[in-house]
């Protein structure tokens, strides 16, 4: 992607993915790196930071002779996600205001 995704956006996307369902490291990494065009190495620090901030918790599930660590969104994570969603709407509105192309009618008005 031409426009880079910053740390706050990464947090928001991880929380949004976990809001849908609990998931494990490899899966969420694949989902988000393909969706956002970021490198595979960028996901772990985000997950660790969110975990330390109390936005997500982990639990291990035994699967084919080993443990798979699942991530689950916490109540605090949901609050943070709600804040990010509001911020994103506001951000999008402001950028759209500046970026949106000139309307056809107003162009004609200017010409006449």
């Amino acid at each position: 992607m031409l426009l880079p995704v910053n740390a706050a956006m990464m947090d928001a996307c991880v929380l949004a993915a976990l809001e849908k369902e609990d998931t494990y490291g490899y899966r969420i990494t694949q989902q988000l790196t393909h969706g956002l065009g970021v490198s595979e190495s960028s996901l772990y620090p985000v997950l660790r930071r969110l975990q330390k901030d109390g936005c997500l918790s982990t639990y291990d599930v035994a699967i084919s002779g080993r443990n798979r660590r699942y991530y689950r969104i916490t109540d605090r994570g949901r609050q943070v996600l709600a804040t990010y969603r509001r911020e994103w709407v506001e951000y999008k509105r402001r950028i759209d205001e500046i970026l949106s192309p000139i309307q056809q009618e107003s162009q004609e008005e200017n010409l006449s």
């Binding site: 490291g25 490899y26 772990y44 080993r66 798979r68």
Partner: peptide, 8 residues
């Protein structure tokens, strides 16, 4: 996390 990544 990275061990699991290799496993998956």
């Amino acid at each position: 996390y990275y061990e699991e990544y290799f496993d998956e």
